[in-house]
Design a protein around this nucleic acid. Structure first.
Lengths: 263, 263
DNA sequence: CCGGAAGTGTCTACATTGTAGATGTTAGGC
DNA sequence: GCCTAACATCTACAATGTAGACACTTCCGG
């Protein structure tokens, strides 16, 4: 079974020719007689992502990652210059899961869909979100990994194709992505624990607050407990688009109602 | 993580063994001649904040902070249980700089002002922003430092006083704060370097992008260079408020199930 | 066939981190 | 005076990122 075409770069066929044991087990158990497969940047990054997903950001150490790949930690430096680069690689990998199609004339629908996709992406990799929002802060825009910039470019394309001027497109993008990131942060802040124990723990926590100082917050406990992220996001996007339409003389559809409900 | 500032001699132990004299009053005593003032949590946190502001997040180590305060690093654990608590304390300290007045009937104006205040706060402490957005992700809402929750409570109060229902206030808060945080992240991402070299560096960086893959981004270099954060934020808030007002006439959050009454 | 060369993997070493635990030092009440 | 408790400092240790040396694999030109 060959699950992935790994384009290692040069001379793939020779590698395949000399390789006697393709042995493509996902390197889970380091125990038995599994042959060591050839590493690649992708494999390393995927292992790193898996580690982060399962055990959190601080579990991603070189030693731990090396152990997960059954390799010497030092060898990883061939695929990422240092730990920071590794983190960048992980964010890039995650962002690559996001698909953006530029040819759709219904740009509002597109923005809505992308927002939900990105939200789901964040929920799928909550531990990566700090990287998503933090890493760009320490890297000037021009020097970021390409995968990080691709959504920006694609959404700009989407907007420009929809008739926006370049500069307006940038503004719309900023408002849109700003809100989107903000929402994701918001939602993840309220999420964290699984919804079951969420409520109990929330009440417990809120109960600790001094009643005189935090009356409304305490009163809102039930409302806080039933948080519907998708709906909240959808309505936020609607608000944003409505507001946009009032401020731009651009092809905007007036949504009298009919905010769709995502499955 | 540069092993840079090692200004101690090679044989540290011998030095320490021969001279058991107390610390010899290194620099940092600009206060006023008192040899060792009594510490307090506030003093420690302020020193920590100063360190972060001046040298970045990773410069805030226990040893470094102890040195800045001319104290043994271990002694700091009396004022913060561990490093994470120290970070929480710093974010709390920063958020305390934000003033919110609940009695103003012009809630839109208030929200606008607070947004600008928070923006300036972020620009004043850019290195703390990662903490601001990241720390809450690892702490359930009910267990956060009180200072962190106070803005939430106060803005809720502001909105409720303005006539919103409790649940609606929460939704408005979320949209508002989400957008606000998103904007701050956006702006800081494009900021980072000082504006002078920003443009050159930006062009340089953008020039690196493959033209076929990033045509719009490259074309937008000049627009990217003159970024006016305050204006961008203000327009964003306007858009948001416009959108909000369009949805407020109709009930803001309407679904069949009663979000009004928990039972 | 070889023998160097370049790439790849592994081991050791070191500076630096957070922090537990022991040890010294001081202040206050009897 | 002494006892207790708080406070301050020191030592120690495990874990981290990563430099540098070493070994093995694979290749290519002779």
């Amino acid at each position: 079974m060959v699950p992935r075409s790994r384009r290692l770069g040069p001379r793939l066929e020779e590698v395949a020719a000399t390789m006697t044991t393709p042995q493509q087990h996902t390197a889970e158990d380091a125990g038995g007689g599994t042959r060591k497969k050839r590493l690649s940047r992708e494999i390393v990054l995927e292992a790193a992502l898996k580690l982060v997903d399962e055990e959190g950001l601080e579990a991603l150490t070189m030693r731990r990652l090396g152990q997960a790949l059954d390799r010497d930690p030092m060898g990883l430096y061939r695929y990422a210059a240092n730990r920071a680069a590794l983190l960048d690689g992980v964010t890039e990998l995650v962002l690559n899961e996001l698909a953006i199609f530029g040819d759709d004339p219904d740009w509002q629908g597109q923005l809505r869909r992308i927002a939900h996709d990105l939200r789901l992406l964040a929920l799928r990799h909550p531990n990566v979100v700090p990287l998503l929002v933090t890493r760009p802060l320490s890297t000037p825009l021009g020097l970021r990994p390409l995968g990080t910039l691709r959504p920006l470019e694609q959404i700009l394309g989407l907007l420009i194709d929809a008739g926006f001027g370049a500069s307006d497109a940038l503004h719309v993008y900023r408002a849109y992505y700003g809100f989107l990131y903000g929402h994701i942060l918001n939602e993840l802040q309220e999420f964290i624990v699984d919804p079951d124990e969420n409520e109990a723990l929330l009440r417990l926590g809120l109960h600790r607050l001094p009643p005189k100082e935090f009356p409304r917050l305490r009163a809102l406990a039930p409302a806080l407990a039933n948080y519907d992220g998708a709906k909240e996001l959808d309505e936020g996007i609607t608000i944003l688009l409505t507001g946009l339409s009032a401020h731009l003389s651009a092809p905007l559809i007036t949504t009298g109602e009919g905010s769709r409900q995502p499955g």
